[in-house]
Simulated scan of single mutants.
Amino acid sequence: MNKAYIALGTNIEPRQQHLEKAIKLLVQKENIELISLSSIYETAPVGYTDQAHFLNMVLEIETSLYPEKLLDVCQAIETQLGRERTIRFGPRTIDLDILLYNDENRTSERLSLPHPRMGERGFVLIPLKEIAPNLIFPVTGKPITELVNDLPEQDKKDIHLWKKAE
């Protein structure tokens, strides 16, 4: 089995229901097993800032799917939940990003592993640290905890625990 970490984000209401539906659809797949999930964090938007705050979380899964097939599943869930790609970094019902897949460090036409911006995004690193603090980021060789500690305070100030994992 392969280990992967997936980030979820939403800022169109009902935000919590979008997260719950995405998780349910993901784990309904027979070749995906949920190992752990972070708490939900409310975060200010990054990039395009004229939009509502996001709810973000990270899942750890095990899967027999290859990375591109896992990407297909994630994108199908986004489509099923009404995701529209109109504004880059804009509002969305749900976003599922594969952050890490085993220790792979590669780029294809459709997928970059690890996710290209995850090492500088507090809204991804903070929930990831909650469920995998000792995980090593393959690009730098540093543990996730260290990456979170190295984030500028400005990048951490708008990330707040919204709801504890159940």
Rank of each mutant, 00 (worst) to 15 (best):
T79Y: 10
H53E: 13
Q75D: 03
K142F: 13
F137K: 01
P116D: 12
R117C: 09
D103V: 12
I98W: 02
K3H: 07
V73R: 12
N11C: 01
S36R: 13
E104I: 04
K24I: 02
E84Q: 11
L113W: 05
Q75P: 04
L55F: 15
V148D: 10
W162R: 08
R88G: 02
L113V: 11
A76F: 00
D97I: 06
S36A: 15
D72T: 07
H115W: 08
V148S: 13
T63M: 08
N105W: 09
R110K: 15
T145D: 10
N2P: 04
Q51S: 09
K24H: 12
S108H: 05
E146F: 08
E68Q: 11
P138D: 13
T10A: 15
L96D: 01
A52F: 12
A52T: 10
K163Q: 14
V27A: 12
E62R: 15
Y101F: 15
H53N: 14
L147K: 00
I144E: 02
E60R: 08
E84L: 12
Y101H: 10
S39M: 02
P116W: 15
E78I: 01
R110P: 01
Q51Y: 08
G9Y: 01
Q17V: 01
E13Y: 11
K157H: 12
V27T: 14
N149E: 15
N56H: 07
L96E: 01
E130V: 02
I12A: 00
A7P: 03
P14E: 06
I23H: 02
D50V: 09
E30S: 14
N134F: 14
T93R: 03
T145R: 13
A44G: 09
E104S: 07
I40K: 06
T63V: 12
F123L: 11
W162T: 03
